[in-house]
Every structure is written in C-alpha cells, then in structure tokens.
C-alpha cells in the first residue's frame, strides 16, 4: 500500500504544485493586467456579437493576436498585454486559416462589405474558403423601413426578395467594427520594448519603404508594378475587385473612374490617404466607408498602388511619384 501511496499520491502532489505554478499563479497574476490606454469595454450589442463569434467558432480560423514580427504588420501593431483587459473568453486563437482580426474594424470599416462577405464570402473574395453565414440573414419580400437590404451581386442574391441581416448578424458586425487597436502610449511602447525588439514604429506598417529616403529612390517613371499589384490585392481588391469593376451598388468601380483617370492625381491620392464615405461616384451614391491608408502604408507603397490603378483595366491616368504622396500627406497636416 505504501508504494501505491508514493506513486499515486507523491506524483499527484508534485503535479498539483506544478499546476499551481504554471497554470493558476500566472493566471492570477495576469488576470490583474490593467487596461491599456484607450482600451474600452464592449457595448451590449458588441458583446452580443462577440457571443455570436464564439458560438460559431470564428476563432478556429481567425486569430486575434498580432505578433511583433514583420509578417504580422499588415494586421496592425503588435498586441500588448493591456489590449486584453476586457477579453474574456480570450480569443487569441491558434491558426490563421483566415486573416487576423485584431484590427479589422480599422482595416475594413465598411459594414456593407462585412454583410456581403458574411452572407457569402465568395461574393467579394472569389478565392475565399470561409463558410457562408447566410443563415444569419433573412430573405424578405421587402426590407422593413429603416433597414437597408444587403446589396448582393446578382450571382449571389436569392432569386426572389431581398436579404436583410438578423439581429445576430447585426451584433456580429457591430463587434467586428469595434475591433480597433488603440494607439500605443509611450509607456506601453517602453514596456513592450523587450518583446518587440527589432520592430520599427508603432502603427506605421508595411515594408521598409515607408521611409521617405527609399521613396525618393524609386524612379519616378517606372513604378514597381509587381508590388503595386500585390498591394492592390492585399488592401483594395476585397471591395474594388481584381477586375477593378467594384460591386454594383456597394463599391464603386475603379475601371474608367474619373478620379483615377484625371491627370490631376490630387483627389486620387487624397482618397487613398484619408478614405471616403457616403460619396457619389459616377452618379451613384455609395454609403459604405473606405478606410484611410495614411497610417498603414508608406508613401512609395501608396504611389505603387495608385500607379497600378492608373494603368490597369484600360485606365490611363498620369502616374504619380512617391514625392507627390509626401506632399499630399504634408498638406493634410
């Protein structure tokens, strides 16, 4: 009997100590982590949306943790301890079958896009393998007063009636819209210093090209077409589509777009830098918002995207230089 006590009891005692040390104590300590500057609790609707997110397992494919690594910069600044104050259950996730969503409220602020994408992701991103969540929507003969039907492309719309979000879909989209990283305070940055060794600025993301020096080095005539195309795919194609046609009624086309073909690129640059909402393009009013890219992309990158847009799909706008972007940035200050 004594031997049994030693093996079963002894090992269990050892294990209990280790569980305390590696599970419970770090848990106690870290549960006290104070909120970072600007980190807010969710509203009731957003919290409801978070429950929808959990119930349907979004976090098996989407992480909510930006690592202090170069490849994560597209998703935002590195996550800090203070970001998680109001996040219980934690949704850091372990796999990125789809992109990280930590900062999706900033990266894709358009609710219209979110609804279309949720209804059927392939309507806006043809290569997507995310499931359709069309069961979070109702198909009705006519949208109730005050509710905008989801402007689905024809190929994805039901044959009869219009599509309106249910309460759950509304809550979920409200939650996604709330996912915005607050800017870091000085103290946070100092604290995160050790963890972020080697990471450049806080919010300025993108490759090394954000520095004006590199920008000036890019020849004015030939832009980096491959990079322009890649950046367009990463940042713009979700709405304006790879063929530049946009989605009728939801996102304006860039193909044949007046601002894109105008020799004076001022408007084009401004829109990419600062975003847009509720604007008339080619006689149609688009209610969805376009995000600003001033904080996420460098000057040379923005110039590449603009030049890609100005020279694709039959467009023939005069190319811009990174210098022009620098000037436009300065003018806006």
């Amino acid at each position: 009997m004594n031997k049994l006590l030693l093996v079963a009891g002894g090992s269990t005692l050892v294990y209990a100590c280790l569980a305390l040390m590696m599970g419970v104590l770090p848990g106690i300590e870290l549960s006290k982590t104070p909120a970072g500057q600007g980190v807010q609790p969710l509203t009731a609707l957003q919290a409801e949306g978070r429950d929808v997110y959990v119930a349907n397992g979004c976090s098996y494919c989407h992480t909510q943790q930006v690592r202090p690594l170069g490849q994560d910069k597209v998703f935002g600044r590195p996550s800090m301890a203070g970001d998680f104050k109001y996040q219980t259950p934690e949704l850091l996730g372990s796999e990125r079958t789809g992109p990280d969503l930590t900062n999706i409220g900033v990266r894709q602020p358009s609710a219209v896009w979110q609804y279309i994408h949720l209804y059927n992701p392939r309507a806006v991103v043809p290569e997507s393998i995310m499931p359709s969540f069309n069961w979070l929507f109702d198909v009705v003969a006519r949208a109730p007063v005050g509710v905008a039907p989801v402007p689905l492309p024809k190929a994805y719309a039901p044959a009869q009636g219009v599509v309106v979000p249910t309460r759950k879909a509304e809550a979920l989209i409200a939650y996604l819209a709330s996912l915005k990283q607050p800017a870091l305070s000085e103290a946070d940055m100092a604290m995160g210093g050790q963890a972020m060794a080697g990471v450049a600025g806080p919010v300025t993301t993108g490759s090394a090209s954000s520095a004006p020096a590199t920008a000036a080095a890019t020849p004015a005539a030939g832009y980096d077409a491959a990079r322009g195309a890649a950046l367009f795919t990463a940042h713009c194609a979700a709405c304006h589509q790879a063929d530049g046609e946009g989605l009728p009624g939801a996102f304006p086309p860039l193909k044949g777009n007046a601002a894109v073909n105008d020799d004076d690129a001022g408007k084009h640059i401004d829109v990419v830098l600062h975003g847009l909402s509720n604007t008339k393009v080619g006689g149609v009013v688009y209610s969805s918002a376009m995000p600003p890219f001033a904080d996420t992309l460098g000057d040379a990158e923005i110039a590449d995207i603009i030049d890609y847009e100005r020279s694709s799909w039959g467009n023939h706008g005069k190319p811009v230089t990174p210098g022009q972007v620098v000037t436009a940035r300065a003018a806006a200050k």
Partner: peptide, 16 residues
C-alpha cells in the same frame, strides 16, 4: 473562473 480573465486566461489556456 477566478484566475481566468483576459491575459490570465491565455496563460491557463496554454497550460491546459
């Protein structure tokens, strides 16, 4: 639940 808030829960998840 008592030690599983925010980042504390992340630590417990890793352990678990």
């Amino acid at each position: 639940p008592w030690y599983q808030y925010g980042l504390g829960q992340v630590a417990v998840s890793g352990f678990y």
